[in-house]
């Protein structure tokens, strides 16, 4: 099950914890994977851990021109694109009262604007080939909200609405579009939390642990698979039961 042999995938934000895990899982399932991100040396490290064919396509997602060219760069490297995993994202956390235009625009442009651009540039080829998988990595807070993250939550909720609309536009052409909404995932940021804060965090999670990159990656492999052909426009919540929506 969930064999991606012969498929190609582009993963943005592949140098981060979740992106890396997704790239590894897609590769494990047989896909050729293009890794995108800004830190080229880290992308090299990730590529070295993949067992299958891979490519590195660095891109700064705040550079609109570069984003517009990313899919064609990817296709030159690994062939026509079957699977897009839009995972890259940034935060500029502040209370709304303190948030300035740059905080707002940067987050919306990188998280949501690049999703629009990337999707637009790969959907044409996918339509021709009558097959495609668009997977947006959103966040639980895009659905629940979170104080200090009006910009980030707006961008993540935006991804969900965008994906639902796109899913309806392209469903008849064999293309699915879904989002995955991770809950709290272990990262260098959560590692350094003091014990009492960690405990408070864990009390909110019925599973009693933080998520791992691999938990999200498994969901991505599923949504990318042939078996998920009838699943589209959905948000798959992977959060240990922290929010049941």
């Amino acid at each position: 099950m969930f064999d991606l042999t012969g498929r190609t995938a582009l993963v943005t934000g592949a140098s981060g914890g979740i992106g890396r895990a997704i790239a590894q899982a897609l590769s494990e399932a047989g896909a050729k994977v293009a890794l995108s991100g800004t830190r080229e040396n880290v992308l090299e490290e990730v590529a070295a851990t993949l067992k299958g064919e891979s490519a590195i396509v660095p891109c700064n997602l705040s550079d609109e021109e570069a984003v517009n060219g990313l899919v064609s760069k990817t296709e030159e490297a690994i062939g026509p694109l079957d699977i897009l995993v839009a995972n890259a994202g940034i935060t500029r956390d502040k209370l709304l009262m303190q948030m300035n235009d740059d905080d707002w625009n940067d987050v919306l442009s990188v998280n949501l604007g690049s999703y629009f651009r990337l999707t637009k540039s790969c959907v044409r080829g996918m339509m021709k080939r009558r097959h495609g998988r668009i997977i947006g990595i959103t966040s639980i807070v895009g659905v629940t909200g979170n104080p200090g993250q009006t910009n980030y939550c707006a961008s993540k909720a935006g991804m969900i609405g965008f994906t639902k609309s796109l899913a309806q536009e392209v469903a008849s052409r064999g293309i699915t579009a879904n989002t995955i909404a991770p809950g709290f995932i272990a990262s260098p940021m959560t590692d350094v939390l003091p014990d009492n804060q960690k405990e408070a965090l864990l009390r909110q999670i019925p599973s009693g642990r933080l998520g791992e990159g691999a938990d999200i990656a498994a969901a991505a492999v599923y949504l990318a698979s042939n078996e998920a052909a009838y699943v589209t426009g959905q948000t798959l919540h992977v959060n240990g039961g922290m929010a049941m929506i």
Binding site: R124, M127, K128, E169, V170, S172, R173
Partner: peptide, 9 residues
């Protein structure tokens, strides 16, 4: 409308 896009392509 989607057929139209494909025709143009």
């Amino acid at each position: 409308s989607l057929d139209l896009v494909e025709l143009v392509m």
